[in-house]
Nucleic acid binder design. Structure first.
Length: 534
RNA sequence: GCCCUCGUAGCUCAGGGGAUAGAGCAUUGGCCUCCGGAGCCAUGUGCGCAGGUUCGAAUCCUGCCGAGGGCGCCA
């Protein structure tokens, strides 16, 4: 790849110019402005102090070394600003990029093996199995799945996991509420109010055990809703079985053996202050019941035995548990660094500008199914992935439901549909796809064509960065760029026509095929479909 | 009080050490004899404030201001 070639050449040149030692990494980036060339390096700026020269003078020395034998594709090298070294390349480097895109096809374009088969377990959603998922679950659900896709695309072995809190008081309360509905009564004090229970009660056979039947029904509900969003968990892990298998007691014993658990005031405590927590935490309450923490520790103990690295996706309202969870696994002797807890900021849900309440009884909430009904899986996924998880997100369901231009997913999908339409027309006109040897990509020199290839060239870096930073929104941003580049090309450069030379038509068909590969690959990475017609 | 995240254009958000800070929506005005107008082009005195680190800060550090979330023998 051109990037590595230039970095290598820079390293050699800098060494010959007296830079010693060479920096750990030589930075090479794409300048924001086209006037600054195709690639730019700051080595001279970064190392001038150690060499004892002013940056521009050092840059001149390095450039002189580089000019002894220009690296492939390089047309000229300039020194600019305070001492940047700017490379101006011939378009041939982009033709080479396009060739590699066509070669890769959507199945492999942008993918890498950097994860080296590391087994990552990512746990997300994990909503209680006693009521349907609501809109507030959307962000974490879609995000978790997108991160899983990114990790898979970068050579990790991924397990998607859902933890079921299927024991405890809330399950009993749920069963009681369901049974009451079945009898046509109002739910008990503090019970589950939602209308869904009326429907579930109607479905429930008379002789069914409300707890077991309701639990199963809720899990089906979760799976169905998630399935509509193309989210499929590999493992549904039951807290109940964890207790039944004796794993909770084993974990507790392990903590005791390591002197990380102690008894005080009639309760059993975790020595979490050993791991930076501001106080120790209760594992077993005075009444003998576990707190949520102990089964959670046992659960993570089990996960550590099944994967190299753990990721938990939690909402912002759980951020206070990060320290004690890490303390818990640390107390077991595991490396807390292998447990990555990602906090997603909350979502403000609006409907036509008006706030939709996310708290309180279910009656006030919007079911996730309703969101999918209103705006579809594609728009839902695209929207919830379009911004960083570190920022609070505002989503207006009303605006999205209109399928208006407020949602760029259509802009991206439209690009794909146009390409499909072009291909069909081309086939009709008898333009057959040509092999690498006979297509003349050198004909692609229009500004719009160049721009499209430049965007395509960035995709592998985007995927790598998005995966490393757990930031699928970077893929969304890139897709919008590619779609914009394509639409601009489509407007200014006709693929077929009386005044278009056949060779150019074939070259442009190759180019839009490259765009198609990019769109399909990118959309697949975020789990959004690439429709052939809209 | 302490902890976490955020503060970028009228609105929703990208950009997370580089050289002139970008997109969508909204506004205003252009572009259909021609591959799908769900499109293209033009239109903007914006990085909360103050210090610091650096050759260079929207980006890193500190403080302040503002918004949201969290600090249970609840889950």
């Amino acid at each position: 790849m051109i990037r590595e070639q230039l970095i290598d050449a820079l390293g050699v040149a800098a060494g010959n110019a007296g830079v010693d030692p060479l920096p750990a990494t030589i930075e090479l980036e794409r300048p924001a402005h086209r006037d600054h060339g195709d690639w730019s390096s700051n080595v001279a700026l970064a190392t001038s102090k150690t060499v004892g020269k002013n940056p521009r003078a050092l840059a001149a020395d390095i450039v002189a070394e580089l000019e002894r034998e220009l690296p492939a594709h390089v047309e000229s090298i300039e020194i600019a600003g305070p001492g940047f070294i700017n490379f101006r390349l011939a378009d041939t480097w982009l033709h080479e990029v396009l060739e590699s895109v066509l070669d890769a096809q959507p199945q492999t374009f942008g993918r890498s093996a950097t994860g080296d088969g590391t087994h990552v377990n990512i746990e997300f959603v994990s909503a209680n199995p006693n009521k349907p998922l609501h809109a507030g679950h959307a962000r974490g659900a879609i995000y978790g799945d997108a991160v899983a896709r990114l990790l898979e695309a970068t050579g990790h072995h991924v397990t998607r996991e859902f933890y079921l809190n299927d024991r405890g008081v809330q399950m009993t309360l749920f069963a009681d509420s369901l049974a009451a509905r079945k009898r046509g009564e109002t739910v008990p004090e503090g019970g589950y109010q939602g209308d869904y229970l009326v429907d579930w009660a109607a479905e429930m056979p008379d002789d069914a055990d409300p707890l077991e039947w309701g639990y199963e029904r809720a899990v089906i509900s979760h799976k169905t809703t998630l399935g509509r969003l193309r989210i499929v968990h590999d493992v549904w892990f039951s807290e109940r079985t964890l207790v039944a298998d004796g794993q909770v007691e084993e974990a507790l014993q392990q903590l005791r053996d390591r002197e990380m658990a102690f008894d005080n005031d009639g309760a059993t405590w975790l020595r979490s202050t050993e791991f930076g927590d501001d106080k120790d935490r209760v594992l077993i309450k005075g009444d003998g019941d576990y707190t949520y923490l102990l089964p959670d520790i046992a659960y993570h103990r089990d996960k550590y035995s099944r994967a190299d690295k753990l990721i938990n996706v939690w909402g912002a309202d759980h951020h206070g548990y990060v320290t004690r969870m890490k303390a818990g696994v640390g107390a077991l002797g595991h490396d807390p660094a292998d447990l990555e807890i990602i906090i997603t900021q909350l979502v403000d849900l609006l409907r036509d500008g008006e706030e939709v309440r996310m708290s309180g009884r279910l009656g006030d909430m919007v079911a996730l199914d309703d969101v999918v009904d209103d705006i579809g899986a594609d728009a839902t996924r695209f929207t919830f992935l379009s911004q960083s998880m570190d920022t609070r997100q505002t989503v207006d369901l009303g605006a999205l439901a209109e399928k208006s231009m407020d949602n760029p997913v259509f802009y991206v999908q439209y690009a794909h549909a146009r390409i499909h339409s072009l291909r069909a027309r081309a086939a009709q006109a008898g333009h057959v796809a040509t092999d690498a040897a006979s297509r003349e990509l050198a004909l692609l020199t229009h500004e719009r064509e160049i721009e499209m290839m430049r965007v395509l060239s960035e995709y592998p870096d985007v995927v790598a960065l998005a995966a490393r930073e757990r930031a699928p929104h970077k893929v969304i941003t890139w897709l919008r760029q590619l779609a914009a580049a394509f639409h601009g090309f489509y407007h200014d450069c006709h693929v077929m026509g009386d005044d278009i030379d056949t060779a150019l038509t074939l070259a442009r068909l190759a180019l839009i095929e490259g765009a198609r590969v990019g769109l399909v690959a990118g959309l697949d990475l975020v789990g959004v479909s690439a429709p052939e017609a809209m």
